[in-house]
Amino acid sequence: MSQLPPLNTLLAFEAVARRRSFALAAAELHLTASAVSHQIARLEEFLRVKLFERGTQGVRLTSAGESYLQRVAGALGAIGAATDDLRQGVRNSLYVHASPSFASLWLMPRLADFAQACPGISLFLSASPTHSDFAQGQVDIDIRYGGATSAQDLTIEPLFDEPILPLASPAFIERHRLREPSELLQTPLIQSTVSLVQWSDWLPAHGVTPLPDRYALRFDRAQLALDAAIQGLGVALESAVIAGPHLEGGRLAPVFDPAQAVVIRPHQLVYPQRLARRPEVAAFAAWLLDRARATTGIVPLSDDPDRLGAPENTTGLSAA
């Protein structure tokens, strides 16, 4: 292992960087401002890099300091979390991160099953649209949307096929009586801006041009787009897997024949290979992949077979 700076210098650095003040950092660490300044000087001497610029309006990080803080803050956070777990008697902890809509609509309904299958694991689940940085040591497993960059030190497992298709509330479908994809151009469309499949992909794939120049509503989360569709505000182009609870509960339905879906595999299980032998990581990965294999993405059909049209798919996009 490479030589590490003294821990107390790193704590002082993180506190000053966060507080932007030697005096406030000193009060937090129960030290004098002079002692904190001395710790920073020791760290800068150890690194041979200047970390702060000192001025009349306080202190600010140099570019080198900003870069160092991004790595160090995560490592200190991981040490703090591990310490808290141990002090509070928490054993076999597992930190999982997932994209928000996947976490709330697919993973959460299955967590009771995981708790029953692995009762000895203490699970911490977080959700955000950004991929986790494993170098910071704060996450063991990341469930990513949009693909993972191939890396020799990562295990990457695709989860399941997801049919992407127009979805709306049954009342909306009944009211608008949509029979052909071209009729969507006269209908309020909901755009999910982060989706890998956009209306600009699906509509031409079903012979619809020109594309709409605006959308009734736009969201940066699949769950929000689905909620808007449930409220009857328009048609959402979303994953039948992520929308599964709403489809099963009758809150949403496919606007057209599910055979018109574009099929992708956007969610992936990702974790560092160095963690593969951790019992908690191995158990969660095995459980997740098993549940993923049981996920079919089958879409319930409408009660009105006359409404469901299936025009020829004239593009190279994959259909269900």
Results as ranks from 00 to 15, higher is better:
residue 250 G to N: 05
residue 83 T to R: 15
residue 221 R to L: 13
residue 69 L to E: 01
residue 292 A to E: 07
residue 135 A to N: 12
residue 157 E to K: 09
residue 183 E to T: 04
residue 178 L to D: 13
residue 120 G to F: 00
residue 267 H to S: 03
residue 95 Y to N: 14
residue 30 H to M: 09
residue 219 F to I: 06
residue 63 S to I: 12
residue 98 A to R: 07
residue 56 T to Q: 14
residue 82 A to H: 14
residue 112 A to C: 10
residue 255 V to P: 06
residue 89 G to D: 12
residue 263 V to K: 13
residue 216 A to F: 05
residue 113 D to K: 05
residue 114 F to C: 05
residue 165 L to N: 08
residue 5 P to A: 06
residue 65 G to D: 02
residue 230 I to A: 12
residue 144 R to W: 04
residue 181 P to A: 05
residue 3 Q to D: 11
residue 202 W to D: 04
residue 71 R to G: 01
residue 84 D to V: 15
residue 307 R to P: 10
residue 174 E to H: 08
residue 277 R to Q: 06
residue 316 G to P: 03
residue 8 N to H: 02
residue 189 L to F: 10
residue 306 D to L: 11
residue 282 A to I: 03
residue 243 A to R: 10
residue 262 V to Q: 14
residue 42 R to N: 07
residue 78 A to W: 13
residue 92 N to Q: 15
residue 108 M to N: 09
residue 190 I to K: 09
residue 244 G to C: 07
residue 126 S to M: 01
residue 275 L to C: 11
residue 65 G to M: 04
residue 243 A to Q: 12
residue 180 E to G: 03
residue 228 A to Y: 07
residue 317 L to E: 09
residue 237 L to H: 07
residue 119 P to V: 05
residue 209 T to K: 10
residue 154 L to I: 10
residue 231 Q to P: 02
residue 231 Q to I: 01
residue 173 I to F: 06
residue 262 V to A: 13
residue 295 T to N: 04
residue 12 A to F: 00
residue 40 I to G: 01
residue 57 Q to Y: 08
residue 22 F to Q: 02
residue 39 Q to A: 02
residue 25 A to Q: 02
residue 133 D to S: 10
residue 282 A to T: 03
residue 241 V to P: 01
residue 193 T to N: 08
residue 174 E to K: 09
residue 26 A to K: 01
residue 65 G to I: 01
residue 246 H to N: 11
residue 55 G to M: 08
residue 111 L to F: 14
residue 308 L to I: 08
residue 90 V to R: 15
residue 151 A to M: 04
residue 229 A to D: 12
residue 33 A to F: 01
residue 171 A to L: 14
residue 205 A to F: 04
residue 238 E to F: 01
residue 17 A to V: 01
residue 294 A to H: 11
residue 314 T to H: 10
residue 61 L to E: 03
residue 57 Q to N: 13
residue 89 G to M: 10
residue 264 I to D: 08
residue 234 G to N: 07
residue 311 P to D: 01
residue 99 S to L: 00
residue 267 H to R: 02
residue 185 L to W: 05
residue 1 M to V: 14
residue 240 A to F: 09
residue 257 D to R: 13
residue 249 G to L: 09
residue 144 R to Q: 15
residue 313 N to R: 08
residue 85 D to W: 15
residue 98 A to T: 14
residue 173 I to Q: 12
residue 9 T to D: 05
residue 241 V to D: 02
residue 204 P to E: 06
residue 281 V to L: 05
residue 239 S to F: 02
residue 168 A to E: 07
residue 203 L to I: 01
residue 89 G to K: 08
residue 277 R to Y: 00
residue 84 D to C: 11
residue 67 S to G: 09
residue 177 R to N: 15
residue 162 E to F: 04
residue 226 L to N: 09
residue 16 V to W: 01
residue 184 L to F: 04
residue 164 I to F: 10
residue 15 A to S: 14
residue 29 L to E: 00
residue 82 A to I: 08
residue 31 L to Y: 04
residue 29 L to D: 02
residue 280 E to A: 02
residue 43 L to A: 00
residue 126 S to T: 11
residue 319 A to Q: 11
residue 115 A to M: 13
